[in-house]
Write a protein that binds this DNA or RNA. Sequence first.
DNA 1: GGCTGGTTGTTCAAATTGGAATCACCGGCT
DNA 2: AGCCGGTGATTCCAATTTGAACAACCAGCC
Lengths: 152, 152
Amino acid sequence: MNETRWLDAREMAAWTAFLDASHRVFRSVEQQLKDDAGLSHPQYEILVKLGAAGAAGIRMTELAESLITSKSGLTYQIGQLEKRGLVTRGACPTDVRGVTARLTESGRAALTEAAPGHVARVREALIDVLDRDQLDTLAQALGRVSDRLRDG
Amino acid sequence: MNETRWLDAREMAAWTAFLDASHRVFRSVEQQLKDDAGLSHPQYEILVKLGAAGAAGIRMTELAESLITSKSGLTYQIGQLEKRGLVTRGACPTDVRGVTARLTESGRAALTEAAPGHVARVREALIDVLDRDQLDTLAQALGRVSDRLRDG
DNA sequence: GGCTGGTTGTTCAAATTGGAATCACCGGCT
DNA sequence: AGCCGGTGATTCCAATTTGAACAACCAGCC
């Protein structure tokens, strides 16, 4: 049983800033999307991924992993979006069990409509607050963090 | 209506890394706490704040703000922790309406027990993955982001 | 062919969350 | 003292989240 290596001032500052900023940024983004587009952030992210996937759509499991959410949670949200006509479910060509989600025309329109306000808020909350070097360091550092956790 | 300033590659990289790392780090931390201490991350954060507050305790509203959560959510979680005997509610000396939450002995013990494993996971997921400069930049950049959102 | 371990997506129950409504109280003002 | 807008905390409700259980199916191997 090793002795605990507590966080020093520098490390604690980084951790609390990360915690605090994450909570605040997500809260801010959530608010904007809800108010201006009637979408939750998870829902918006689904639309973005589906938008990028094109006509072929994406498998549920793959989508869940890319969104870093649970499969059951995704099933629920896709259900919600399907009810609103923004998304359709289709059979997967290569696997009978598989389900592919696709954006409808209406869904693509909703995304197009929601995107500008969302980007503006992301700039306001995070991007435009940082300078070029900070952006690069952030991308590199947190990219590394993500990669480690994805593999580990 | 201004034209939308979309995110360029650098900005998009920072945003997606931030999104991705946040989801993954929180998920990892949540998992560790649940498995090893039977606490959710929000609950652990409550214990930490109460631990820092000492015998005087903290007012509910102040605690909610410092945790960046809703008041109703905090009421619920404090209720859960109270059931387990980790926290007590007391009257506020200066305001009859006020409620101050305090850590019990048992709560302090639970915190002491949970802390090492939690810190280890935070290191593993975030801190030890970064070098000194990255930590400093992260703290400075995200600190700035937090401050802006807190005031705005 | 038939078995077996792993995968896919959904369903289920339980826990959590946030916002609106509510009730009691504070503090300044008349 | 009495009024009034604002604050503190809880309650209530609807929406969401997660993991476990489940049923159907894939793929490699005997």
